[in-house]
Design a binder for these strands. Structure first.
Length: 332
DNA sequence: TATATTTGACCCGA
DNA sequence: TCGGGTCAAATATA
């Protein structure tokens, strides 16, 4: 997009490491797929003295591979356009960053019925990352909900939320601040993942020259759930958004649980069912991920994985405890 | 009329 | 206590 990324052109060892990890992970996934294609009893690994690795082992290896990859990427991406990418999600966030859910403003010190301004639960930690861009626009529809003069800052900060906040419970927000040294440029901080599915902005299959650059450009954490891509566009996000907003508070509350789960996916040690549904959807959603092709499809692997997670989450599938939960992205 | 933006008030975390 | 983040009434716009 606007800038390049250190690892897209930089230390080849980093790239090699990332590629190696993903190739390894894909191989494991391929093995897992073949296991899953066998008759059902074989998937019950306790009943099958197969010499090949158990599904459990394979999944652990796959997850380790992705974990390794992510750690390499995050350590490599902290300079450059993506200034900071915090993939750690606090558990507290899962239930407190919906300003209107549960007791926010209701059971707390109740303001006058007319004026509930300021009644919200401030999100504490969530996925955040920042970028510097000459445009505030990206491929999501944002609605401005506030502007604030910031101390020691020449320009005010604008606050945007996803226009799908109310109809789909999407909690993604972003903050836009014009840079002092270069007023043409904006520092844009994205907070939270998009959990919305925007029909106007279908998931993009990543096919680009440099899969890693494509990944970071097109798949920032907000598009992990398969709904997003980043693209330069006309400069309009500061002043408008086009997607209609349905003001229906109860609907958002109803959706909050779903988005909580989505937000904690992959980091919640107790939600292993999501991980399993993810892997089930490897074959349900995109068989091509298993292709042994190498090279430009690495970005596809990553983006497809994220598409799978979204699909799985919406299916609400659950393997129901064939595998006890001792694997996840964090503790492999 | 419906939707988006502006803006002052309010709340929370440091 | 203060700065920053969010809410929601008022206002603007299509």
């Amino acid at each position: 997009m606007e800038t390049t990324h250190p690892w897209s052109e930089g230390p080849s060892t980093t790239r090699k490491k990332v590629i190696q990890e993903l190739v390894e992970g894909r191989d494991f996934a391929t093995q897992l797929k073949s296991i899953l294609h066998k008759p059902l009893e074989i998937t019950h690994d306790h009943a099958s003295p197969s010499p090949s690795p158990s599904p459990h082992e394979l999944v652990s290896k796959i997850l380790r591979s992705f974990t390794e990859t992510l750690s390499v990427l995050t350590s490599s991406c902290e300079s450059g356009e993506v200034i900071h990418q915090n993939l750690a999600v606090s558990h507290a966030d899962s239930h407190c960053d919906d300003p209107r859910s549960d007791d926010s403003g209701e059971s707390r010190k109740r303001p006058t019925p007319k004026d509930r301004r300021g009644c919200y639960k401030r999100r504490k930690t969530t996925q955040t990352w920042a970028k510097v861009s000459h445009t505030t626009d990206d491929d999501h529809a944002w609605r401005k909900y506030g502007q604030k003069e910031i101390l020691n800052a020449k320009h005010p900060r604008s606050y945007f939320r996803c226009t799908r906040k109310y109809d789909q419970g999407c909690r993604a927000t972003k903050q836009v601040q014009r840079m002092e040294e270069d007023p043409q440029m904006y520092q844009i901080t994205y907070i939270g993942l998009h959990t919305c599915k925007d029909p106007l902005k279908a998931p993009q299959i990543i096919m680009d020259t440099d899969p890693w650059e494509t990944y970071i450009v097109n798949n920032p954490p907000d598009s992990m759930w398969g709904n997003g891509k980043q693209a330069d566009d006309h400069d309009q996000a500061l002043s408008s958004s086009t997607t209609p907003t349905i003001k229906q508070e109860s609907k958002e509350e109803a959706l909050s649980d779903l988005t909580d789960n989505l937000s904690s996916l992959g980091t919640d040690n107790n939600n292993n069912s999501y991980l399993w549904t993810d892997f089930k959807d490897f074959e349900l959603v995109e068989p091509a991920i298993m292709s042994p092709k190498l090279g430009s499809d690495n970005g596809d692997v990553v983006s497809t994985l994220y598409s799978c997670t979204e699909t799985a989450s919406h299916h609400g599938l659950d393997f129901g405890g064939h595998f006890d939960g001792d694997f996840n992205f964090d503790d492999i």
